[in-house]
């Protein structure tokens, strides 16, 4: 079975079957969009909440504000219906908690931004394993929409 690895800023998609994987989510947020009827899966690996002027050539998937719409477009292109899309999220951790005592961590900002943009597009969130202070590996099984999340030294959990 095909397994595609989604690096920072990338958006990858599969139809019918296969696995979409992001390895090493820290403060980034992994987003899995799924239409269970069409069996269309799209995964994004969001780096920061908001796109910026000094990065005009960035992949749309790098930032939450451009990434979520681009992921929806990709799902629709593969035959998904917007109204059937559901999302699962993982990541948004703060690996260096003692450096962020006075401000909201990037991870938390990413989670908030992703949630806001999903809600703007009326996409419900059906599973989530976010924040905390550890890295995660996220695997998205497109044949049934199952998403597993693994931390170092732990068994995978299903979200």
């Amino acid at each position: 079975m095909v397994e595609l690895f989604v690096n920072m800023g990338q958006i990858c998609s599969l139809k019918t079957e296969g696995i979409l994987t992001t390895v090493g989510l820290g403060s980034c947020v992994g987003v899995a969009l799924y239409d269970s009827a069409a069996k269309v899966g799209v995964m994004g690996h969001i780096f920061l909440p908001k796109s910026r002027d000094n990065d005009p050539d960035a992949l749309p998937g790098k930032y939450a504000d451009t990434g979520i719409p681009a992921m929806i477009d990709e799902a629709v292109r593969l035959g998904a219906q917007r109204s059937r899309l559901q999302a699962k999220l993982a990541g948004g951790a703060n690996l260096f908690p003692n450096l962020n005592v006075n401000s909201v961590s990037i991870g938390e900002q990413n989670v908030t931004a992703v949630k806001d943009h999903l809600s703007k597009h009326r996409i419900p969130i059906s599973g989530m394993d976010v924040e905390g202070s550890h890295g995660r590996k996220m695997r998205f099984f497109v044949q049934n929409g199952v998403v597993t999340v693994t931390a170092i030294g732990k068994e995978p959990i299903e979200i």
Partner: peptide
């Protein structure tokens, strides 16, 4: 320098957290 933060984790997770923390995009 500030006090140091330390993480023992997946390389990808540490890397992206460092880059995002410093807002490095290029």
């Amino acid at each position: 320098p500030s006090i140091p933060g330390i993480a023992v984790d997946m390389a990808g997770a540490v890397w992206e957290s460092v880059l995002a923390g410093a807002q490095v995009v290029n």
